[in-house]
Design a binder for these strands. Sequence first.
DNA 1: TGTTGCCTTGACGTCGGCGGCAAGGTCTAG
DNA 2: CTAGACCTTGCCGCCGACGTCAAGGCAACA
Lengths: 130, 130
Amino acid sequence: MLIGELAENAGTSTRTLRYYEEHGLVRARRSANGYRVYDEAELRVVREIRALLAVGFGLDDIRPFVACLRAGNTSGHVCPDSVAVLRRKLAEVDAYIDQLGEVRQQLHTQLMQAITQREETCFKHRQPER
Amino acid sequence: MLIGELAENAGTSTRTLRYYEEHGLVRARRSANGYRVYDEAELRVVREIRALLAVGFGLDDIRPFVACLRAGNTSGHVCPDSVAVLRRKLAEVDAYIDQLGEVRQQLHTQLMQAITQREETCFKHRQPER
DNA sequence: TGTTGCCTTGACGTCGGCGGCAAGGTCTAG
DNA sequence: CTAGACCTTGCCGCCGACGTCAAGGCAACA
């Protein structure tokens, strides 16, 4: 499989695949002419990477998952390092959700105050007219 | 008030204040020697900016709030444009919270599956020993 | 043989909110 | 007079996951 095909199959770009390789996530042999050649297994790897990125992981976090896949596991999640990252990320997400909840509350309050205040101002302006 | 004092009072840096000015958020007169001179009101402006940034607003979103303050309002939130931004941000935050909730669920599921799978594998390996 | 379409490396651009440094002017206290 | 503590403008660096050229090599087909 050449880089263009892999990109197509994985739903991404060739630039992206080279980027992953540059960062040690994806591997390729080279054919005689210097072209990158991928085996089938890399497709799973790339899909794993994409899935994890979509969930908010950084490339560094993803490395253990790829290693886990390469170690022969059906899933990249089952190795200790992967599980550790999963735990950490879950905690991070929980914390972030809480934080966002507070922000939401704050925004809501400010919005209500603003509306209330606007109505009061409007009221004051209307009073003298009557 | 010179830039250093304002920075100190607002709990930020001079670099930051120049940045805000560069982006049309903060205003300053110039003294004879070319130094920026701020009036008291700018302190409120800067604090408003900082507060909104902390909640996740971008500088562009903040502009209407500053304009609202400059228009003589006690709060930067009461003007229509500000309220519109508040509404939009609230909606964005809500959407993001939902999204993060899904991510959380996904992470949780994956974590559970990984742990379960690991236990099964462990079990399989132990069986032949007995 | 020329054109099209793949591939290669290299390197700069993006977004946002600044940090930090350089080179220089200004003001004040000793 | 000079040190040091302000101030000025200008510009590069940062983070992350790529996008987007640029300049060139290789392959295949008419």
